[in-house]
């Protein structure tokens, strides 16, 4: 039947709605697709981490080359000395990965902030929450969807480089020994990276949820990050107490990495539990803020 008032016909839907669709995944992927449209920021934000990753891959390759029996047990004394020097300087793969993370962390936070700051702030400003919550979507699903989007960009900036370095290490190691014998290190590195991404994702979303606009949220994120990092260092120096450094997110992650990968710089005298508590409190506050804000959004405010 053709509608009398206009040219197109309304077709009723004959299918069925799914009982348990992966709504959070749909929401996360729609956010990622919007992000992919912004090509220039992607180029600017990911080019430095990409270069740093490639350099690290070369260093890992050289490390394993230096362990080659032809060099270590060879007859050329200069090669032996060079090989030993390289091994001493470059150290283990995980040390190189942690060094890589230190180099790129500012860009990772920038990338996550750039793509994640507007996720809730813009929804609220444009009142897109009305479209989402008028559907069979719970606050939890909405939260997971948004977290999925921001973590995707974090994973691209941190998780992929770690996978690349691990792959190079596996290929370069004799008889795949890195993959076969030291695979727990790969798992630990990825777990460490994911913990890093998850906490920053929550932080980005919590700040986004209390801001009116994306730019405010971005500024808020960097304000928070700089204030806690610089502030904690300054306070620890003024009051001569290392406890102040627990306020800094990077310091706590450094402490966790020391415990996870079994080395100590000796500059962080507090316990692992203290760092976990400090980060746990940040996670708790972020989740609480998100809970309150998404509740408001659900009720149309």
């Amino acid at each position: 039947m053709k509608a009398a008032t206009h040219t197109e016909v309304y077709r009723p839907f004959r299918g069925e709605l799914k009982t348990f669709p992966l709504r959070a995944l749909t929401l996360a992927w729609s956010g990622v697709r919007i992000g992919f449209r912004k090509k220039l920021p992607a180029l600017l934000l990911f080019v430095i981490p990409a270069i740093a990753t490639i350099v690290t891959c070369f260093l890992v390759q050289i490390t394993f080359e230096a362990q080659n029996p032809d060099i270590t047990q060879g007859t050329i004394p200069q090669a032996k000395i060079l090989g030993a020097l390289l091994q001493e300087q470059l150290g283990k793969v995980e040390i190189q990965v942690l060094a890589l993370l230190r180099q790129i962390k500012a860009f990772v936070v920038l990338a996550m902030g750039w793509y994640g700051s507007g996720l809730i702030a813009e929804d609220r400003r444009l009142r897109a929450n009305l479209l989402y919550f008028a559907r069979p979507l719970t606050r939890w699903t909405y939260f997971l969807g948004k977290l999925g989007t921001v973590c995707f960009w974090g994973f691209c900036a941190v998780g992929i480089p770690i996978l690349m370095v691990s792959s190079v290490a596996s290929f370069a190691s004799p008889n795949w020994s890195f993959l076969l014998e030291r695979w727990p290190v790969i798992v630990k590195m990825e777990a460490y990276a994911m913990m890093w991404v998850l906490l920053h994702g929550l932080l980005v979303l919590a700040i986004s949820s209390v801001c009116e606009r994306r730019n405010q949220a971005l500024a808020g994120l960097f304000g928070f990050y700089i204030l806690t990092s610089i502030g904690s260092t300054a306070m620890s120096r003024i009051f001569d107490g290392s406890a102040w450094r627990l306020v800094s997110i990077p310091e706590n992650f450094e402490r966790i990495s020391e415990s996870m990968f079994g080395f100590s710089s000796g500059t962080r005298p507090w316990s692992l539990e203290a760092s976990l508590w400090a980060l746990g409190i940040i996670v708790f506050v972020c989740v609480a803020i998100l809970q309150v804000q998404t509740r408001k959004m659900e009720s149309g405010r």
Binding site: L17, T26, L27, A128, L131, R135
Partner: peptide, 25 residues
């Protein structure tokens, strides 16, 4: 809804299909 509430960066067909998927299609 009464307000604009449409997210920039998406196309019309993307928005409608995404919201359809969120409903359970």
């Amino acid at each position: 809804p009464e307000s604009d509430c449409l997210l920039p960066g998406m196309t019309g067909v993307e928005l409608v299909s995404t919201l359809g998927k969120l409903t359970g299609l």
